[in-house]
């Protein structure tokens, strides 16, 4: 397992950004519950950071259930994977798949035909040690659950991004994950990305607000991503939504990337102006309640 220094040589073309840090930051994206948007968040934050000019490596640690390649639209370019590297069938550099657009963005795919026992904590630490030498950011897409796969993924991370949706089961699982992250003293910092926020429902008091979730979890917010059909469309095209300029969720992810890079970006106001239809619904609901 060796990583060449010229691994990401083509980054020169991308706009250079500060980051005087000698070694890259390893950030794990985790949630406990499945299906809340871990992989989507990893793909978009990683792409967002690469758009800012940082060297980024995305690592899919979900051995046996890989999906990050699909979200990045790179599924046809995979030759080797993480387990091939560990078992000496290729060098680390050979397994890294270059992004279609951004030369400073690469993916280290998971093995699809193996299971999570093929990867252990020492492997993870070793891989990340090598990757952080050549990248500004190493983003680890964590498997769902809090078992060995999760423990393996968080073993090498300096920071964590907890992804949750404003639903009870997701928030409860996020709370468990936060407890486990706190117990892990190698994790220096963790923040929340609240996904699939639906401002219209919050306004009607049908859904917990971002503030509600932050209060319950006692966690700092990294970003809130609105529920957005653009995400489905872009996923189907194999293009992270962060690349779609006019998309609201894309904007939200671009802001998250900037915050990770240390910029102070105000949180998006997701409130849509009251449409008269909303008001009518509210009116209707109110009168029904009184009846």
């Amino acid at each position: 397992m060796t990583v060449e220094k010229d691994l990401m040589d083509s980054t020169e073309k991308a706009p250079k950004k500060k980051s005087a840090k000698p070694k890259g930051r390893v950030i794990v994206v985790t949630s406990g519950k499945g299906g809340v948007g871990k992989t989507t968040t990893t793909a978009n934050i990683g792409t967002g950071l690469a758009r800012l000019g940082f060297k980024v490596v995305l690592v899919d640690t979900d051995i046996g259930l890989r999906n990050l390649d699909i979200l990045m639209g790179l599924e046809n370019r995979i030759v080797y994977n993480l387990i091939d590297v560990l078992e000496g069938r290729c060098r680390l550099q050979q397994a890294l798949v270059k992004d279609k657009r951004l030369p400073n963005l690469t993916l280290l795919p998971a093995a699809q035909t193996r299971d999570k026992s093929a990867l252990n904590e020492e492997h993870m630490v070793e891989i990340c040690k090598q990757l952080r030498e050549v990248a500004d950011f190493v983003l680890l897409d964590c498997p769902a659950g809090i078992e060995q796969g999760f423990q393996t993924a968080i073993a090498a991370a300096d920071e964590a991004i907890v992804v949750a949706t404003p639903e009870m089961s997701s928030v409860r699982d996020a709370d468990r994950v936060i407890g486990l992250l706190e117990a892990k003293n190698t994790i220096e910092d963790y923040r929340l990305v609240l996904n699939r926020v639906r401002p219209a429902l919050v306004k009607m008091n049908d859904m917990m607000s971002t503030e509600d979730v932050l209060e319950i979890l006692s966690i700092r917010l990294l970003g809130q991503i609105p529920e957005d059909k653009d995400i489905i469309i872009s996923t189907n095209r194999g293009e992270p939504v962060v690349n779609i300029e006019e998309s609201v969720s894309g904007q939200a992810y671009r802001n998250v990337a900037k915050r990770i890079a240390g910029e102070d970006v105000p949180f998006l106001n997701l409130d849509e102006p009251d449409s008269w239809v909303d008001k009518l619904k509210a009116l209707f609901k109110g009168s029904r309640k009184q009846a």
Binding site: K203, N205, W276, K279, A282, L283, K285, G286, S287
Partner: peptide
């Protein structure tokens, strides 16, 4: 609708 006093129902759900 926007000036309808029943707009208060908007908050009544709380």
């Amino acid at each position: 609708i926007s000036v309808n006093p029943l707009d208060r129902n908007f908050d009544a759900d709380d």
